[in-house]
Structure formats: C-alpha cells, structure tokens
Computed example of a mutant assay.
Amino acid sequence: MNEEAWTAVSAIATAAAFLVVSWQAILTRKALDLSQGVALDAAWARLDNGAPQVSVHLEDPKWPLWAHSQHGMPCNEWPRGHQWHFPRDEWQSLVLQAVVVVENRSSRQIKGRFEGDLIVEQDARPVAAPSPVLIPAADGDTPHVMRVYLQKTLTAKELSENHLADEAGQDLPHRAVGTITLHDDRDNGVVDTWTISLTGCPLRPHENLGNVWVEVGDNLTGDPGRRSLTYERLPNRKRTYWVSRERGVPLGPHG
C-alpha cells in the first residue's frame, strides 16, 4: 500500500477514534446529568415532605370603601352616592383593605416576616405588622391563625388614575402590596414566600357630570361594587430550597 493510502487510512482511523471518544463523553455526560437530576428530585421531595404546613389567603376586601382616619384605623364608610368633584376633592383619601390570614398547621413554630403594606391594629391604630415574628405551632388538628391587614390609603385622584390606566389597557399604577415569608428553623429546608396585591378601579366618572367621580355601585345582577377590585384570594406561593440558609447556599429552583 502506498504512502498516500496509509495516510488516508490513518486519518480515517483517527477520525473514528475521535468520534468514539466524543460519543462516550456524551453518554457519560448524559448519565451524569440523569444521576444529578435524580439526586435533585430526591432532595426536593425530601425538603417538600419536611416543609412546615403553612398557608396564606385573603378574605374579600372591605366594601364599600372606607374613609381614612387621622386618629386610628378606618372606621367609616363613604356615604352611598358620594361625589368627588375634581380638582377640589382630589386629595380626599380612601382606604383599600383586606384581611390576610396566615395559618400554621405544623407541629412546630415558624418564623414569619411581613413587608410592604401589611399592618396590624394596636390600640385602635395601624402599625406595621411585627417582623420577624414567631408563629406558634398548631394545637393538635387546630391550626394557629394569625391575621394581618393588607391596607393602603389612596387619594381620589390616584384611584381615578387607576381607572384611566385600565381604560387605556395599562397596568394599574396604584395598589397595596405586601410580602409574607415563612419558614421553620431548619438550616437545610425551605422558605415560602407570598406576594399579595390589592388594587382596582372603585371610582368611575359620573355619567352626566363632568369632572365628578363616584363609587362603583352594584350592577343589575346584584354583584357588589367589590367586583371593581383586583386581588387573588389564594396568592401563588414561591418556594426556595436551601442546602444551607445560614451559609447562603441554595439547592436551586424546582425543575
């Protein structure tokens, strides 16, 4: 066999060997990925099984809208049929409020953190929800329940801006927003977070009077004006998995 033929055979053999090695590497990588995936699935499942049994939900918001009070929690509804004449009454305040219910059904206490527009009532006054706070364990089959308020005071002008944004197909600019974070004391565990929001368009322009705004009323089918508010009774939970919370080492998001 001449030299050129040997060169060709050698090149083919080298290419074939490279392909074999590359294919083996691919198979090895796939096996490692599969093994790692199985291990992660097992770790996620273990942490899910050991996670504290907690839940967060909203009660229906207060309706009709309440008036802001300088001396404590809002306690008076705006009169039915009240009219806000702009620009004279743009500054008048209205309160969006819903009760947020946190339930701990676990046999151990958990730690809660409340951020944003979340408050509690103290001596008839609104104060920021305590954070961090320990939430006691359930009493047998009876969960421990903690209630806080998602509450924000908005002006009539801000609520009119919500209406105009909705008419334009835009996101509503003014809302009450809060974040609730719950976890137990385990370093290798999970942290559950809920972001809750309350907004809407409870004011609308008067049908016949320019620059006058009124509260949305009941419709012909009897649905109350509360339908103008936007909220989720069961907000989505975001779960974070930790190899070590203390060292800041996450396990990674669930696949």
Rank of each mutant, 00 (worst) to 15 (best):
34 L>S: 06
113 R>N: 00
154 L>F: 02
33 D>N: 15
224 P>D: 07
203 L>R: 06
23 W>Q: 04
198 L>D: 03
78 W>T: 13
133 V>Y: 03
122 Q>W: 09
95 V>E: 11
11 A>W: 14
189 G>I: 10
233 R>F: 12
74 P>D: 07
142 T>H: 09
86 F>G: 04
214 V>A: 12
33 D>Q: 10
192 D>H: 14
137 A>W: 00
175 R>I: 01
174 H>M: 08
206 H>Y: 07
61 P>H: 03
81 G>F: 06
244 S>A: 03
225 G>Q: 02
129 A>K: 00
24 Q>L: 13
253 P>K: 02
157 K>N: 10
74 P>W: 13
119 I>S: 11
252 G>K: 04
126 P>V: 08
18 F>N: 15
184 D>C: 05
254 H>D: 01
10 S>D: 08
227 R>I: 09
35 S>A: 12
248 G>L: 09
252 G>H: 11
1 M>P: 08
111 K>E: 14
204 R>E: 02
76 N>G: 05
41 D>N: 10
87 P>S: 02
47 L>D: 07
97 Q>R: 07
13 A>C: 13
182 L>C: 03
145 V>R: 06
175 R>T: 04
116 G>M: 00
47 L>P: 07
174 H>N: 07
145 V>I: 06
24 Q>G: 14
198 L>G: 05
31 A>N: 01
135 I>Y: 11
94 L>R: 05
83 Q>W: 01
19 L>N: 11
244 S>C: 10
18 F>C: 11
89 D>W: 08
40 L>C: 00
150 L>E: 03
2 N>A: 08
81 G>H: 05
123 D>Y: 12
45 A>T: 13
31 A>Q: 06
43 A>R: 06
218 D>Y: 12
244 S>Q: 06
66 W>S: 14
148 V>R: 06
61 P>Q: 04
196 I>N: 03
208 N>T: 15
65 L>D: 11
93 S>F: 12
189 G>M: 08
229 L>Q: 03
233 R>G: 07
185 D>W: 14
118 L>T: 02
128 A>K: 13
245 R>I: 08
126 P>T: 02
102 V>G: 09
13 A>H: 05
201 C>V: 14
152 K>E: 03
92 Q>Y: 04
138 A>S: 01
214 V>L: 11
133 V>T: 06
156 A>F: 10
102 V>K: 09
241 Y>Q: 13
39 A>P: 00
66 W>L: 15
17 A>H: 10
223 D>S: 15
88 R>W: 13
247 R>G: 02
149 Y>T: 10
87 P>G: 09
91 W>T: 06
227 R>G: 13
34 L>K: 06
229 L>D: 10
240 T>R: 13
37 G>V: 01
159 L>H: 03
48 D>C: 02
167 E>H: 05
84 W>M: 11
243 V>W: 05
120 V>A: 00
9 V>E: 01
78 W>Q: 09
69 S>V: 00
96 L>H: 14
10 S>H: 10
76 N>T: 09
86 F>Q: 05
243 V>L: 15
5 A>D: 06
105 R>G: 08
40 L>E: 08
20 V>W: 13
32 L>K: 01
230 T>Q: 12
123 D>H: 01
247 R>P: 04
